[in-house]
């Protein structure tokens, strides 16, 4: 066990991600995405990736950057509707897509990380999602079998980490990140602040460091907003 998992360079941290690897990437929309790791991967040009992530960024940000470089061979997602490059590559057959109901996707990643090879859910019964899947009836209701997902790597974004990789997330940027962290053989966490051991209250830790191999401090997070909605202050 490495007591200090902190690495200095994003390009070094992602250097052993190979062509055709499977990556599990945290984030919902552009909220809580590992933006620095994604940019490092773009710069390195790693290709033929299978990426498991709820969404696929937008044209010029997040996972959309990897699409633009034609680095992704297959996406496993629940919603991919915000991305023009995605549409073009999907329609031309360059990009393979597996659509998974959002709750099933979350549970498949959680299960993968928790050593559960498969589970049954009602989500998708009677829809195209059920095609080719084993069905069973429990207590009079039909369920379909879904498989756990594991990744060669997981890329996650947290708010704070200590040097052992214990992670704390902030507000709704938590989303898929703790699940992704569990399901990667090697999990790379980028954060906005790294604190010394003992500075995080054990009660506040969302993801225990056992799931995390590498910790990196990111700076100047852009945190782009997809839909800025505000209200006027009255008075």
């Amino acid at each position: 066990m490495a007591v200090n998992k902190v690495m200095q360079s994003f390009s070094e941290a992602i250097a052993d991600i190979g062509d055709a690897n499977t990556l599990i990437v945290g984030g919902f929309g552009l909220c809580g995405i590992p933006e620095k790791s994604i940019m490092a991967l773009r710069d390195r040009g790693t290709k033929d990736l299978t990426v498991v992530s709820n969404n696929c960024g937008v044209d010029n940000w997040g996972l959309g950057l990897l699409l633009a470089g034609k680095q992704i061979k297959k996406m496993v997602s629940s919603y991919v509707g915000e991305n023009k490059i995605f549409e073009t590559q999907y329609l031309s057959g360059e990009l393979e897509v597996e659509l998974v109901p959002q709750g099933t996707l979350a549970e498949r990643i959680r299960a993968g990380g928790a050593g559960i090879p498969a589970f049954f859910t009602q989500s998708g019964v009677g829809t195209p999602i059920a095609e080719g899947k084993e069905q069973r009836v429990f207590d009079g209701r039909t369920y379909i079998m879904e498989r756990g997902i594991k990744g060669d790597f997981a890329l996650v974004k947290a708010w704070k980490a200590d040097t052992m990789g214990n992670l704390v997330f902030r507000k709704t940027s938590r989303n898929f990140n703790p699940l992704a962290a569990m399901a990667g053989k090697i999990t790379i966490a980028e954060v906005e602040e790294i604190v010394q051991l003992g500075e995080l209250d054990p009660d506040e830790i969302h993801t225990p460091g056992i799931y995390v191999k590498r910790v990196l401090l990111g700076s100047n997070y852009e945190k782009r907003i997809e839909r800025k909605t505000v209200r006027a202050v009255i008075g």
Binding site: S77, S78, V80, G81, L99, P101, Q102, G103, S123, T127
Partner: peptide, 8 residues
């Protein structure tokens, strides 16, 4: 586009 959470 995808189903998001609707099926769940």
């Amino acid at each position: 586009k995808g189903m998001g959470g609707a099926m769940d």
